[in-house]
Design a protein around this nucleic acid. Structure first.
Lengths: 191, 191
DNA sequence: TCTCTTATGAGACTGCAGTATCATTTGTGC
DNA sequence: GCACAAATGATACTGCAGTCTCATAAGAGA
């Protein structure tokens, strides 16, 4: 079934993505017009919209790494921060180096440009709540307990900051650094 | 000097803000056009743009509470998280209850709608860096030290989460709750 | 090769944000 | 009341995202 048609579509899609990200890097997200992307990808504007309904769709994360499942599988005795740290570690371990590298540019980008942060926030309204609910169930308290919120906030804040460092230094070992940062948080953020 | 002109300008500005937020609540931020806001505020489109250069300016925080100054004034011996906690406390203490209440709706709104989160992120690229630099100077390490980033990330994450709780429950004492959350972070996030 | 289906390109069109110009109104100082 | 400066309104304009229509090109299957 892998006819010429399908292969061409894949190539076109990849070409659009590649050129779009190149332009984004060169001149920024909002300064890059769809017309420029289409031209660089040697495709008409209309075709661009057939592949990506909106500009945002170029950069939004289709799905987060299976963080939720990994979190559920953590040992019940672990403290909340430890459990989340373990979940991140497990989630990343389930990805091949290629997958991490492939998704890195795109996700890092999405985490760096404000417009895209918003786009992703809009697409994942449940993630924060979901993490909070699991932690609350583990700890035997209500999901809206301030302490649960604090843990989620602190962990996500630390991860976000590390993610941004990763964005600026692609040579960095992102997963390892995230783990190290969470260990730092776990041990009280002392210097 | 408080002539009629000045008072009219203040009234116009308030009218635009009030009608804009009413419409935002009714039909959402991006679904509200500037033309609608201008009409509701009984003002021409041109005048709207004279008061607010962009739509985003309606909702972005003009300036954070004088957090930076408060942070610089913290006792040098305090640990980073403690210093930030103290800075938040001082910054809020410098505001009257009216100022807090007045800014609350607007800021809460800005913290809730994804587009506006992005707008605020774009406007405060320096805040995070600035806080990091001060903390680094206090601790005698480099501003890009991962530990500094972790502290900033964790604190901002905790504050952001508390801020969202505040958004859902306006009766909450926001500043006090932020202080409590930071105390929780300070003491290791244990349950 | 011939037909059918599907992807593409071209171009016009809408809606909205933001800019620019210029005439008109409306406070302000005298 | 008068002359000046400032705020406003009307209007036309640009630029870009996203939609729509229709003609053409190109792969699929016979």
């Amino acid at each position: 079934m892998s006819g010429l048609r399908e292969r061409k579509k894949v190539k076109t899609r990849e070409s659009i993505l590649r050129e779009a990200f190149r332009l984004f890097r060169e001149r920024g997200y909002s300064a890059t017009t769809i017309e420029q992307i289409a031209e660089a990808a040697e495709v008409s504007r209309a075709t661009f919209f057939r592949y990506f309904p909106t500009k945002e769709d170029l950069v939004t994360l289709d799905h987060f790494p299976p963080l939720i499942e990994a979190l559920k599988a953590q040992p019940p005795a672990a403290a909340p921060v430890s459990a989340l740290r373990g979940a991140f570690r497990t989630a990343f371990a389930g990805l091949s180096a290629e997958e991490i590298a492939a998704g890195h540019a795109r996700e890092v980008f999405a985490a760096t440009v404000p417009e895209l942060v918003a786009a992703n926030l809009r697409k994942s309204p449940g993630l924060i709540r979901q993490v909070g609910e699991i932690l609350a169930a583990r700890a035997g308290c209500r999901p809206d307990d301030p302490r649960i919120r604090n843990v989620v906030g602190a962990v996500l804040g630390v991860v976000a900051m590390t993610w941004m460092r990763w964005a600026q230094d692609p040579a960095m070992d992102g997963p390892a650094e995230i783990d190290r940062s969470l260990a730092h948080l776990e041990s009280g953020l002392n210097l």
